[in-house]
Nucleic acid binder design. Structure first.
Lengths: 147, 147
DNA sequence: TCATTTTAAATTGATTACAATTGAATTTAA
DNA sequence: TTAAATTCAATTGTAATCAATTTAAAATGA
């Protein structure tokens, strides 16, 4: 039986399965997202914008735990794909606000089927099991976000 | 209450907390690993070698789910740090076997305290809770590895 | 044998991720 | 009000991740 211990062995540490699972599930998104011309982090940004258009780089970064070093080039690529516009705020010229283009808004309906596709990949899993895993991971994020 | 659903909302998908938690816990390793001159993926490679020295790139890759595109430059950096030697196998010249140097072996004792330091970061967590989370993540890796 | 296939590592190119710094705008406080 | 501190995005540099391809070696089969 697996146990969390303070040892130097790969199989004893929480971090490795977390790291591996994260990469593998992002991998599962690759094919469906490729059809939309998006990478996984770009998809996350688009989702935050589909929820609320016109957010500043800063706000997006707080939600995704990403900084401008990651977001600025990513957003430039989304702009180059004509999915968003980057607009320097007039009220506060430090801010850059991100607005969806028509194409960016249209992409939402094409992306609508993706979550269900991913759940199908996990079809051997009980919904309850996924909920509990998600809940524990959210708690972990909250714990790690304090420090 | 959180629920795993097939929607396009950040908070409804399993993947995002997985992605966020993975990056945050790797972040928690950064400071202790910096003292050893290692990044997190380099630490994973060193751990596999501390468990079994002399493995080929291929074998390390299977354990960490990484390919030569990631490992070759990473291993070259570890070699430049004098922690490992990359040795072309004589029996099979396609293979490159990785051997720890004296310094590489010595680093193990310096790394010994790291897992306990990370557990301290999670000190509000019950050991049972961590075990169960780890177990679920390992199951997830197994599921995703099949597809 | 010798052509074909497979395997292993390396390489190339694109994208993230993140520390550290910069430059500019805004806010705070003296 | 003005100097200092803070905030925001961008930039720079290093490292990782992964797809796709390349090169070489080894294994397979006709």
């Amino acid at each position: 039986m697996s146990q969390v211990q303070a040892t130097l062995h790969l199989e004893d540490q929480l971090c490795f399965p977390l790291y591996a699972a994260s990469r593998m599930i992002i991998q599962a998104y690759r094919e469906p997202l490729e059809a939309l011309g998006l990478t996984y982090p770009q998809y996350l940004v688009m989702m935050t914008l589909w929820e609320k258009d016109g957010q500043a780089v800063n706000e997006i970064g707080k939600k995704l735990f990403l900084d401008s070093g990651t977001l600025t080039p990513l957003l430039k690529r989304l702009e180059a794909s004509s999915l968003i516009k980057r607009i320097r705020s007039e009220a506060d010229e430090r801010r850059v606000e991100i607005e969806l283009t028509f194409q960016g808004k249209s992409l939402k309906s094409k992306a609508a089927g993706i979550p269900a596709m991913i759940l199908e990949t996990l079809n051997s899993w009980e919904s309850q099991e996924l909920n509990s895993l998600k809940f524990e991971l959210e708690k972990l994020v909250a714990t790690l976000n304090q420090t």
